[in-house]
Structure formats: structure tokens, C-alpha cells
Amino acid sequence: MAILVDPATKVLIQGITGTFGACHTRLSLEYGTNIVAGVTPGKGGQFFDNRIPIFDSVAEAVGATGATASCIFVPRANAADAVLEAADAGLQLAVCITEGIPMHEMLVVKRELSRYQMKLVGPNCPGIVTPGPGPDSRGGCRIGIAPGYIHRQGHVGVVSRSGTLTYEAVWQITRRGAGQSTCVGIGGDPVCGLSLLDVVRLFNEDPDTHGIVIIGEIGGSAEQETAEWIHKHCKKPVAAFVAGTTAPAGRRLGHAGAIANSAPETAAAKIAAFRDCKIPVAESPSAIADTILKLL
């Protein structure tokens, strides 16, 4: 088992004919992802690489193929509408890769999604990978832009606000002969879909996840909220890393949400919260895998 997606998940790609969307669609197909449709308004009836049918709308694609998940590569001007179109079509999951969606638009999306069952990962995220059993973990489900080959099927769940640190943690775990159940990069924007805590709760209930890695960063209070919940409710070992220990106050660290405007938003405060809740924290990125694997 895994969380959110598995090899049988039927995936559609919103923005499949754009350069970025087309590139990652091909990589996901090579990985073994079950991509059943693409959506680009005005190009319905065509085929992507002579194999994937393209539709004018998400509703048409869902009706024809039974897709349950979407990966959104739509430009920022239309990305918020693309998320809501996915929800309105009855999808269970959308992964929005698009960066730079205005905060006020995401606030509207967040409010509207409360009326739907669909889960949103992102925006501005690397996406989700549930590794498969084949070479370079092929035969799994890759929705987004994360490199598939660094994964290995296993039992460590990874959730991260940072894309590149997700890859670092995953590759370390793989190189040590362990593997991952599912890896979820939730993105670093101030307003996003699933939170660190949302994903930890899913891992906590997943029988195939034996341990959890959390990668946080400066900004917001998600790490503190997650640490408190883990201390009270989590049944599995958890290890953490927090990026931004040297970040100057008030300066953004890459992501729109990675900025410490007050003491509780600093890396030091988040690390203290994890340790107060008896959650081991890796001292550096290079120690992430060792920190979780010695708990298993």
C-alpha cells in the first residue's frame, strides 16, 4: 500500500502540450505512471505522442477515461482555475506544479476546495512519487517533476516543504538500501493544499509506512502544529530536518512562504518544537537518512 496514489491510479495531465508538461509526461510514462488523458483547450481529439488522447476539458477527460488524479502544468495566469476545474470534474487528487500563483487567488481556491472531496498537493511543488518494484523504482506512480530513479520501494514515508531536500532525503534512504512508501512534496507557498500534518496523518494510518521523515523550513507554524500532533497521536517513529538555520530574519529563502518574520517562524524555534516533542532532528541534510533509519 501507499498514500494518495499507487500504480493503478489513472492520471490526466492538464497542460500536456506545453513544453514543461510534455517533458514530464514522457518521463512519467517511462516510469510506468498510468497516464490516461491530457487536457488542453482547443486541442481535443488530438493525441499526445500518438498514444494519449487529448480533451478540451477535464470533465470530458474524466468521463471518457475514468481518471481520478491530475497533474497541473498550466501557466500561472490560469492555474487557479485549472485546480477548480479539476475539483469540479470530480477528481480525487490534483497536484499543481505551477509556481507564482498570486496568494489572493490561492485563498479563493482554498475556500472553494472546502466544498469538494478533492485533495490538492501544491502549488509550487515537486509532486508525489509512490515507487514501483522495477529497476530505478519503475512501475510506480510519479505525478509531478521529482526524478523517479532516485526512489526505491520501501517503508519510509517522506513529506517535505522543499523540493531539492526531498530528493536529497530520498536518495540517501535509497543508497542505504531502504526505500520509500510514498514521497510527497507539498510545496513552499504560504497558501497550499495538503499540509505537513495532513500528510503525516495519512502516513500514520498507512500499514506500509513504518517510519516518517518530515522536512520543514522557516516560515509559518506548520512544523510546530505537526510536532504537537505527533507527540500526542502518532504511532510510528518520526525524524525531522528544518532548513534555514542561517537565514537572516525577514529574508525569503527561495520559496514564497520561506521567510521568518517572527521568532516562532525561525528554524531554531521549529527545531526546538520537534525536540520538545521527542522527535529527533537531523543536524544537517546529510544526516536525514541516518536519523530515521536508526529508529526503524
Results as ranks from 00 to 15, higher is better:
78 N>V: 03
99 E>A: 09
62 V>T: 08
31 Y>R: 13
63 G>M: 07
54 I>A: 09
85 E>Y: 03
95 V>L: 12
36 V>K: 11
19 T>H: 15
66 G>E: 07
37 A>C: 13
66 G>N: 08
87 A>T: 05
56 D>S: 12
59 A>I: 14
108 V>Q: 06
60 E>I: 02
60 E>R: 01
80 A>N: 01
86 A>W: 02
59 A>S: 13
77 A>I: 03
106 M>W: 00
80 A>V: 01
15 G>T: 01
15 G>A: 09
46 Q>D: 15
110 K>D: 13
100 G>H: 01
107 L>S: 07
65 T>W: 06
108 V>I: 15
48 F>V: 12
83 V>A: 08
70 S>G: 10
79 A>R: 01
50 N>H: 09
82 A>M: 01
39 V>D: 05
74 V>A: 03
14 Q>R: 00
101 I>V: 05
81 D>F: 01
11 V>I: 13
88 D>H: 10
15 G>D: 04
11 V>T: 13
85 E>A: 14
95 V>R: 09
83 V>W: 02
34 N>M: 11
104 H>P: 05
30 E>F: 11
37 A>H: 05
23 C>E: 09
17 T>Y: 01
13 I>C: 06
78 N>C: 07
68 T>P: 07
93 L>M: 10
67 A>E: 11
31 Y>F: 11
81 D>W: 00
65 T>S: 08
14 Q>T: 01
65 T>C: 13
42 G>A: 12
89 A>Q: 04
46 Q>C: 11
73 F>L: 07
78 N>E: 09
43 K>V: 04
73 F>M: 10
33 T>N: 11
